[in-house]
Simulated assay, not measured.
Amino acid sequence: MEPPLADGRFLGDLGFWVERTPVHEAAQRGESLQLQQLIESGACVNQVTVDSITPLHAASLQGQAQCVQLLLAAGAQVDARNIDGSTPLCDACASGSIECVKLLLSYGAKVNPPLYTASPLHEACMSGSSECVRLLIDVGANLEAHDCHFGTPLHVACAREHLDCVKVLLNAGANVNAAKLHETALHHAAKVKNVDLIQMLVEFGGNIYARDNRGKKPSDYTWSSSAPAKCLEYYEKTPLTLSQLCRVSLRRATGVRGLEKIAKLDIPPRLIDYLSYN
């Protein structure tokens, strides 16, 4: 058993912010003037807590853009990792702060971290910030980044029922049938009982017959006669129209970021809108 501290508490009792410095405090609270004074007086901007939290993590998680700017300008490590493997960019995406995300990217933050942990795109999907999702995709975020707990960003967005994020991911070319232990986004949609989400995934080519590691289809996770059950039953009995099948096939052929290719096709604007799900 670990020895107690001087005041009788144990290290594990102190939680996330053990040994945080005045720089951490100012960054978290958005006290930019105090932070500037601390930096000018020589305070270290890369001091870490026992959880490897830097002041830049603290500012990013709270969406404190002015503090993020000050820390970066003072030499804060843009891709520092905490004990969970998260970078300040991950934390900025978790806060949904598009301003912090832009600042971090401008200082060279990696959009695709090398470890098998939740990526910035996963965090943006968890927070439901479609603006952050769109920006990350624009700068090259891996749509199929796989986290061992959450699966792909699409799995996360569906599990959290962030339909705007789901639409952005699918339109950018995310694999609608990507599997996490054979569980697809449609399984998530069925579990959260979201009919709009089910319809969107099917329209983008979601496989209603896909089976997870328990051998269950999405419809197996719905209550009989419920709206999600009726929706899935309809799709099981009614094939997609030829126009929808053609759209799904063409979108699959164009691959990731296919919208850019579709926009250049020499076809009527109405067809481009249809292929773009507008």
Rank of each mutant, 00 (worst) to 15 (best):
11 L>Y: 11
11 L>H: 14
13 D>S: 14
19 E>T: 11
21 T>H: 00
27 A>F: 02
29 R>E: 15
33 L>V: 14
38 L>S: 01
46 N>Y: 04
48 V>M: 09
49 T>G: 05
64 Q>C: 11
69 Q>E: 15
76 A>Y: 04
83 I>C: 12
84 D>G: 12
85 G>V: 08
90 C>L: 10
91 D>L: 15
92 A>T: 12
95 S>W: 07
100 C>E: 07
107 Y>A: 11
108 G>L: 10
108 G>V: 12
112 N>Q: 13
118 A>L: 12
120 P>W: 01
125 C>K: 08
126 M>G: 15
127 S>K: 15
129 S>M: 14
134 R>W: 11
139 V>W: 12
142 N>R: 13
143 L>H: 06
152 T>Y: 00
156 V>M: 08
161 E>F: 09
163 L>V: 13
166 V>I: 07
167 K>S: 04
167 K>V: 03
167 K>Q: 12
187 H>F: 07
188 H>D: 09
191 K>E: 09
196 D>I: 00
198 I>G: 00
201 L>Q: 01
207 N>T: 09
210 A>G: 08
211 R>Q: 13
212 D>H: 10
216 K>W: 12
218 P>F: 10
219 S>T: 05
228 P>V: 04
231 C>F: 00
236 E>S: 10
241 T>E: 04
243 S>D: 06
243 S>H: 03
256 V>A: 12
257 R>I: 12
260 E>L: 13
261 K>M: 13
272 I>K: 07
273 D>H: 13
275 L>F: 06
